[in-house]
C-alpha cells in the first residue's frame, strides 16, 4: 500500500498526489486508490464505488469546479464523464500530473 503522504516519490521522478488536495484547474491521471484516514464506510466499499464511476488507474482527471463553501465538493472530469465528490473522499484517489 502506498503511504499516506502527499508527495511520495515513486519510481523515480513521478510525484504522487492525493486528488482531494489539488487546486482547481489541475489535471493529470489516476495512479491508484488508497484508503483515507477516517473512513465512514468500509474501504472495500468506497474503493468499489469510485471504481464503478470510472475512477480507475490510468483514467485522465481534471479538477473542473469547486463548491461555493470551503471549495468543497469538487467536480472532476474523469475521461468522458464528470463526477462530483467531496475532497475528503477524493483524498482516496492518488494522481500524478500529466506529462
Amino acid at each position: 500500500m502506498i503511504p499516506a503522504v502527499e508527495h511520495a516519490a515513486l519510481a523515480g521522478s513521478i510525484e504522487i498526489h492525493r486528488l482531494g488536495r489539488r487546486p482547481k484547474g489541475w489535471s493529470g491521471y489516476v495512479t491508484g486508490l488508497a484508503p483515507i484516514a477516517d473512513l465512514t464506510i468500509p474501504w472495500g466499499e468506497l474503493e468499489r464505488r469510485l471504481l464503478e464511476m470510472g475512477i480507475v488507474e490510468g483514467a485522465r482527471v481534471e479538477l473542473m469546479h469547486e463548491g461555493p463553501i470551503g471549495r468543497d465538493p469538487i467536480a472532476v472530469r474523469v475521461d468522458d464523464a464528470t463526477v462530483a465528490l467531496r475532497r475528503r473522499d477524493a483524498d482516496a484517489i492518488l494522481v500524478a500530473a500529466a506529462e
Binding site: 477516517d38 465512514t40 464505488r49 464511476m53 464528470t82 463526477v83 462530483a84 465528490l85 473522499d89
Partner: peptide, 13 residues
C-alpha cells in the same frame, strides 16, 4: 453521532 456518508455523483452532460 454519524460520520457523513461519501457523496459521489455523476454530473451528466
Amino acid at each position: 453521532k454519524e460520520e457523513p456518508e461519501p457523496f459521489i455523483m455523476e454530473l451528466p452532460d
